[in-house]
């Protein structure tokens, strides 16, 4: 592991929705440049962990530091791709405008940004279009967002996250709603982006993501990490088979972080 300071540091985290304990004594340290897959059963707390790191939820106990700061203060440095689009599909907005919304509140409004705080400038437009080009969705820029297919929408959501110019990319099941053919495309893209970004991705498919990610974090109330380079050759075979269940569900009594 790198000796550089971790970009995400989660320590002894507890979280409950009302009386239902979702996460317990979770610790996770993410070094810059890592590509971490978060797997685990449904309702095991994967998405909740992401929302805590994003600062959308507040933990009952424990500490989270993102880029050395509390999550809420760091959220502008994060690019988030939600599992389901959190907007109505029939909203009257073009793809380009939706991606440009990632730039609202930024400093790019130019000379008049103080007088006109909502403004985005030419630089912001360039960033939005570049992000669309990066996910090969530039041809969709003028389409209404409701007219996109599932795979196209997923690319646009990724472009919106990239237009935030994030240091960390956080994705919640980015391929859950698209067909498998496109799943590989998205993950190939993520692998390229990993050259400059730290990536956290929630997935239901440990077999698929372990060929892309550097480390797998299994979340089922507690969290345990497994290095993918440690599970080479015959062990991968094992992981794809019966052992997948073991990795995903049988946790040591304490949440262990092999990092």
């Amino acid at each position: 592991m790198s000796s550089r300071a971790p970009v995400i540091e989660v320590r002894d985290l507890d979280f409950s929705y009302g009386a239902a304990r979702v996460l317990e004594a979770v610790s996770l340290s993410v070094a810059p440049g890592e590509f971490i897959g978060i797997v685990g059963p449904n309702a095991g707390g994967k998405s909740t962990l992401l929302r805590l790191i994003l600062g959308l939820l507040t933990p009952q106990a424990g500490q989270i530091r993102v880029l050395g700061r509390p999550p809420r203060e760091a959220s502008r440095q994060l690019g988030y791709v939600p599992q389901y689009p959190s907007f109505p599909r029939d909203f009257p907005i073009t793809v380009e405008q939706a991606v440009l919304l990632a730039r609202v509140g930024g400093p790019g409004g130019g000379r008049f940004s103080r007088l006109w705080p909502g403004g985005y400038g030419r630089a912001d437009r360039a960033i939005a279009l570049r992000s669309l080009a990066e996910v090969e969705a530039l041809d969709l820029a003028r389409r209404r967002i409701g007219s996109l297919s599932g795979g196209q929408l997923q690319r646009v959501l990724l472009a919106r996250a990239l237009a935030c110019e994030p240091r960390i990319l956080i994705l919640d099941e980015p391929t859950a709603n698209i067909d498998q053919r496109l799943e590989g495309d998205i993950f190939d893209l993520l692998r390229q982006l990993n050259a400059r970004l730290t990536i956290l991705v929630v997935s239901h498919d440990i077999g698929f993501i372990s060929s892309y990610v550097t480390r797998v974090a299994c979340v089922n109330r507690t969290l345990a990490c497994h290095h993918t380079d440690a599970i080479d050759g015959p062990i991968i075979q094992q992981l794809y088979g019966e052992a997948v269940r073991m990795v995903a569900h049988r946790h040591p009594p304490q949440g262990m972080d092999h990092a």
Partner: peptide
């Protein structure tokens, strides 16, 4: 527009 379109994303953008 940001708040009307996607409150969660708007919140993340500060």
């Amino acid at each position: 527009l940001a708040v009307a379109f996607d409150e969660e994303f708007a919140r993340l953008r500060g």
